[in-house]
């Protein structure tokens, strides 16, 4: 590990100013991903600015509904928060499906959004990786890609976004509140992560020095009945092969409204807009759910190793939406 200076930030503006002024500085919060990356040599900051003790650790109700989640709220605390459990169960379920109890006690909301792919080639500094070392190539293209993305990939990168939390949040139309040297701005989470294209090293729309201070979730009545299902290689403590976050509003057998997002299959938390459009106004039947999933997956470009994710995604979408539709009509 390369030596680095360490500072504990006492206010957000100061933290932003410090990192903005130093191109070799990085923020650190829980550190559950970054400290591992320091050990692996994936990142080599000369200066860490610790934002974990900034007063951004509250979940509050917004005026007019919805929640504001401070950036340093721990994943465990967010999952257990009474309002999240009640208003957005999909978010609690997604958080609880991720990592382990020990990690959820430390990992923060902002850090979770910025966690990096678990692509084995990205994490191996001896392998070619356009994300870690732009222009070096992509070892995954000729490698083992069971855990890689099938949606949003490019000829330069197949890495899947690893977050569960973000999949639920993108389904819920979350907004990311960002503080920069010139003040605050808001970015829809759906547009916060970039597709890899020919610059997989650019993962989000954040500029150097910009700090996530909160995530806001608008009110959504149907989210009270929402669900998250994660399919993985072992029963717990593993990244998703496929995951589905959904909220559904059915009346008289017709889909009035739906939110659908996918994890484990996209290069970013994947809002399934094509499927949503196919569903609204149509029948709430398994056949319609499968057809909508098929429409979303028409754009998929799988490898031999991960082509199984297409039928697995379709089945999981059908299972989750059918479950919600059944609940709805009870």
């Amino acid at each position: 590990m390369k030596p680095f200076a360490y500072d504990r930030a006492t206010d957000a503006d100061g933290a932003v100013a410090t990192v903005t002024a130093d191109p070799d500085a990085m923020f650190v919060a829980g550190g559950t991903n970054l400290v591992d990356h320091l050990k692996l040599g994936l990142v080599t900051p000369e200066h860490l600015v610790d934002v974990s003790r900034l007063p951004l650790d509250q979940v509050t109700e917004r005026e007019g509904g919805g929640l504001r989640i401070g950036a340093t709220v721990r994943n465990a605390d967010l999952a257990a928060h009474p309002l999240v459990r009640q208003l957005y169960p999909v978010l609690s379920h997604a958080l609880l499906a991720g990592a382990s109890g020990q990690l959820r006690n430390v990992a923060t909301t902002g850090g979770n959004l910025l966690q990096r792919t678990r692509c084995a080639y990205f994490q191996d500094v001896t392998a070619a990786c356009n994300k870690r070392d732009p222009g070096s190539g992509c070892a995954a293209l000729s490698g083992w890609t069971r855990y890689h993305a099938i949606l949003g990939t490019s000829s330069d990168c197949l890495a899947a976004h690893p977050s569960d939390m973000a999949v639920a949040m993108v389904a819920l139309d979350a907004e990311v509140v960002v503080l920069g040297p010139d003040g605050e701005r808001r970015v829809a989470l759906e547009h916060f992560h970039r597709l890899p294209g020919d610059r997989p090293d650019l993962e989000t729309v954040l500029e150097h020095g910009e700090l996530i201070t909160a995530v806001e979730i608008p009110p959504l009545a149907m989210a009270r009945r929402s669900a998250y299902r994660k399919v993985r290689d072992r029963a717990s403590y593993a990244f998703a092969l496929v995951s589905v976050a959904a909220a559904l509003d059915v009346q008289d057998g017709v889909v009035r409204d739906v939110r659908l997002a996918l994890g484990g299959v996209g290069t970013r938390p994947w809002r399934a807009r094509v499927a949503e459009e196919a569903l609204v106004g149509g029948p709430a039947t398994e056949a319609a759910f499968a057809e909508a999933a098929r429409a979303e997956l028409a754009a998929a470009s799988p490898t031999d190793d991960n082509a199984f994710k297409i039928p697995m995604t379709r089945s999981t979408v059908v299972a989750v939406l059918s479950g919600l539709a059944g609940e709805e009509t009870r």
Partner: peptide, 13 residues
Amino acid sequence: GRRQLSCLGLAVA
């Protein structure tokens, strides 16, 4: 009082 992984925490933090 909360369980954490000591390998992923920086001592200075």
